[in-house]
């Protein structure tokens, strides 16, 4: 009964991407997980998707510290082009600074803030939350 879900990882850390891919696959996501190395790549990708009337990935995992365009800049731009009613972005960061969390949560497209490292337990909680209708 498992439906393969779509996901996108926006992170410049190859080890994190490697691990997260495995975790996602283990938890019912498809093999075609999109990966962007920074905010710019992701923004370009999503602009294409939106203009071709395709669906955005159901789950977007966004890192904050990245070269070229960091997570914050991405959120600014994404909120401009996004017409999503549902917030589907999860910010994943090593930061445990409360100010970072509050700032991230202030974006309408951000569903939650998760502190790295990501684990199976955290991911399962996240999926549960994701499938719960409505906002927090």
């Amino acid at each position: 009964m498992e439906i393969t879900k779509t996901a996108c990882i926006i992170d410049d850390d190859p080890i994190f991407v490697f691990g997260t891919k495995i975790l996602l696959k283990n938890n019912g996501f498809g093999t075609d997980i999109m990966v962007c190395k920074n905010g710019k790549e992701a923004l370009d990708l999503f602009s294409d998707i939106l203009s071709s009337v395709k669906e955005l990935p159901e789950l977007i995992l966004l890192d904050l510290n990245m070269p070229v365009m960091d997570g914050w800049e991405f959120l600014e731009e994404f909120d401009k082009i996004s017409n999503q009613k549902k917030s589907c972005i999860y910010v994943l960061s090593s930061s445990i600074d409360k100010r970072d969390m509050e700032r991230a949560m202030a974006y309408p497209s951000v569903r939650n803030f998760i502190t790295k490292p990501l684990s199976s337990i955290k991911l399962r909680e996240l999926i549960l939350e994701m499938e719960t209708p409505g906002h927090q």
Partner: peptide
């Protein structure tokens, strides 16, 4: 943290 996080993962 990002490194130790990766190790844990």
């Amino acid at each position: 943290r990002s490194h130790t996080g990766n190790i844990s993962m």
